[in-house]
Structure formats: C-alpha cells, structure tokens
Write a protein that binds this DNA or RNA. Structure first.
Lengths: 191, 191
DNA sequence: GAACGATTGTCTAAATTTTAGACGATTTCA
DNA sequence: TGAAATCGTCTAAAATTTAGACAATCGTTC
C-alpha cells in the first residue's frame, strides 16, 4: 500500500513518515500540493494524507478544501485523510462533506492515525471498484449504442479486425473463424 | 422499507413487530423458516430478522446458520440481523462470518435494535448495488465474448434483426440504416 | 541445413449475391 | 379521402464470393 503525504512543515512530514513507515509499503512526502495531479495521475497511491493548514498565510483551510476536491474528482481517487489543527471542527466537518474519508487532529495519536489511514483505504477500495465497474459498464453501453447505429459494412470491418487481431494476423485461420473464404477476407481487408 | 421477522415464539414476533412497526413501512412475521425462499424470491424485503434459536430442540443454532446461508446465497439478498440468546457470543461471531450483517442479543434494547436494522439495510444496499452492477457487467462481458466468436453471417443476422426491430419493422428504413439494398435485406431475412 | 506442413499472395472461372430500377398493391398519416 | 411511403415481386447488369490451383515464403522439427 502506497501513501502520499502533503505537509508544508518538513518536521511534520518526517514525523508522519516515521509513524506510517512500518505499516505501509512505500511512502512519499511532498511539501507542495501542486505536484498532486501529476503524482496521482497514474492511480498509484492508495491514500493521501493532506494537511488542511499547509499555507500558513491562509488559515481557513480553503487551500486544503481546494486540493481535496481536486483529488476526489480524479477517476481513480485515493482515500484522503485530512490533518486539521486541533479544535478546527467546522473545517473538518466541511472536509468530510466534500469527500474526505477521515480526519485526524494535530497533535495526533499514532495508533489512531494508522488505524484511520488503513480504514480509509479499505473504505475507499469498495468505492473505487464500484466506480471502475460503473465506468466499464458505461463504456460497454456506449460501445453497444455505437454498434446499434453502425452500417452493415462498418460492423463487418470491425468484427473482421477484431478476429484477425485475435488470430495474430493468421488470415487463413481468421477466415475459417469468420466463416468466409480466404479470398473474401483479402477483399475486405483491402477496404 | 420492508422487514421480515422469523421467530418461533409468537410473543416475540408480536413484540418485535410492535417495536419496529413505527419505523418501517411494512412488517411480515412468520414462525416457520421454510417459507423464507418463497417470500424472498422476489427481492421484496430490505431486511430479515432471524432468530438463531427458533428450534427449541436444537440449541446450537445450526438451523439458524443454515437459513442464514440460504438467504445470503440469494441473488438479491436482504440484510440479515440475527437474534441470539444472551451470551451466545461464539454463535454470533460464527453468524457474522457467514454473512450476517449484525446481531442483537435477547433481551434487546429497542432503540439499538432499530438502529442496527437500519444500519444493516444501509450497509446491505451498497453490497446489493455492487452485486447488481457486477452481474450486469458479467452479462455484457459474456455477450461480448459470444460476439467475438461469431461467424460473420451470424453477426450480420444479429445486427440486421436489431436494426429492423428498432425501425419497428420498416424494412425500407432499416435497409437505408444498414447501408444495403432493400432487396438484399429481403434476402437476408429469408435465412 | 534439409524436410515438412502451414501460410501467403495471386490468379481463374464459375456460382452467388447485390444492386438499381420498375411495377401495382397496400399501408400510413394528415 | 388523398398523397406519400412502404411492400412484395420481378429483371438484368454489376459486384462479390467461392473453390481450386500455383509457386513462394515462413516456422518447426529433425
């Protein structure tokens, strides 16, 4: 399980890395959230630990909420556990509303932190798989719709391509599978 | 939300019905679990309250476990909240392992019971929808596989049928959509 | 590297299918 | 009811598919 930690305080980053290091496969810490989109683009991370107050000039956490939404709008979004200053309940609640999976307050309890991250990952996995299946279903639906509107020749060409590909280009075999003459297959491929 | 209650004790059934009646749309109580498959076949119920000790001659709860598995193996299984005798922790744990969503011990706390049933239903809904989507995805996958293996003529016939159906049998229009001559469409339909 | 079977690309000529067009009969819809 | 669209059927030409044959090439096995 891979974790990504974002906090502008180097000491906090190190501390978090120490605590979580023993429990997770790999941990990456960064100080600048601008790197987030690039790092998460591949869906490599299972969870993100996001500090809501990383910009000391803006204490309302709006930056944190902004990045939270950016993360959660991604196709294969990781679990997000938010780190808020002690007592900042309103911000925490708002963050949960906007898709955060859990939050911990500074200073944190190490055991609780690990448990929350793990639990958030578990919870998020189901949502991810649902999303994956849904998007897949949507794709096949779209393909079906497209298929319905196809001309007979287009459909033929499509199917021929797929069968030829599945035969690794063996045209003799493909023709046999398609139930047509080899010569006919040549004719079709010429178009 | 519809609830099904199974308990061999008539007084218990009445009592449960009273407690839950105010919170759920409709409640059906039965004393004999043999009716379960028929009642659940349509997927009408959101939750089942199942007494593990309804057969007084067998106190090990094996009958309850049996019916729990029957219920949970159904395609659109409802949430199952189990009722166990006080202190029968081992049985409760075993039941949870086998797919039970929650359990209450006799005597029960009314508020807690309602909360557990509601929570179990919520939890189960997600699982149900996941299952539904998964089975749908499986279907479309199977259809795709079948499609891949089709002969060109079979594929043609399939597509022609679907287009003709979509044109409500208007062959002139269907032929135009398919990009073939009307006469050719007649030929194809003859086979 | 020789030998073998399978595949390829190309050709021919016959068989089959598709096509455009036409025709009166029937259906649809305003 | 009346015009437009569709149907079912036909013809003859055009296009496609088919089986079969051939030498060349490829991959495997010995």
């Amino acid at each position: 399980m891979r974790i990504l930690i974002i906090d502008d305080n180097k000491a906090v980053r190190l501390s978090l890395k120490m605590v979580l290091g023993s429990e997770f496969d790999s941990i990456l810490t960064i100080g600048d959230p601008k790197l987030l989109p690039a790092l998460l683009a591949n869906g490599d991370f299972d969870a993100v630990l996001l500090d809501m107050n990383f910009d000391t000039s803006r204490l309302d956490g709006s930056d944190g909420l902004f990045w939270l939404e950016r993360i959660k709008s991604m196709p294969q979004a990781p679990a997000v556990v938010l780190i808020t200053a002690f007592g900042d309940i309103q911000l925490a609640v708002e963050a949960m509303k906007r898709g955060g999976d859990d939050f911990v307050t500074k200073p944190w309890d190490n055991i609780e932190l690990i448990a929350k991250v793990k639990s958030a990952i578990r919870k998020n996995r189901l949502a991810r798989s649902v999303q994956a299946v849904l998007s897949q279903a949507k794709d096949t639906k779209a393909r079906q719709d497209k298929l319905d509107a196809m001309t007979l020749d287009e459909l033929k060409a499509d199917h021929i391509n797929s069968v030829v590909a599945r035969c690794n280009g063996n045209l003799t075999q493909a023709a046999k599978l398609l139930g047509i003459n080899r010569q006919t297959l040549y004719n079709q491929l010429k178009k």
